[in-house]
Amino acid sequence: MEDDKILESFFDGMKQVDAQRPVPPFRKPRPVRRLWPPALRYAAAAAVTIAMVAVLYRVRQKGSEQTTPPKDIVIVVGPEATRTGSLVNTSEQSLSEWTSPTRYLSEDF
């Protein structure tokens, strides 16, 4: 306890010295007015990034469109066959129209 008194006396003396020390007056720091609040800055940065990605994507897409060769379209036009409902297409002919493929033999004879 006696030892503590020595220290208490020491620090009391220090306080007395400090009591004469000039202390700068309390000044409230002025709030810094930021033109762009932090949230707005982050939002702007995100928007710019998204825009840049979109532009890059478009540019890449356009580039790939130009490099692919144009495809040829072939349209085959043929005579339309009459639908017989059969799997085998045979030309329908009446008996009066029918001519024998070997008729020329009998004519020659």
């Binding site: 030892d3 020595i6 220290l7 020491f10 003396g13 220090m14 007395q16 010295v17």
Partner: peptide, 20 residues
């Protein structure tokens, strides 16, 4: 700290607590 400061005070007697 107390022990060391006491030793320092003993070694360096602060006259009138060192008032300048």
């Amino acid at each position: 700290g107390k022990k060391q400061l006491k030793e320092l005070i003993a070694l360096n007697p602060v006259q009138d607590h060192g008032r300048r």
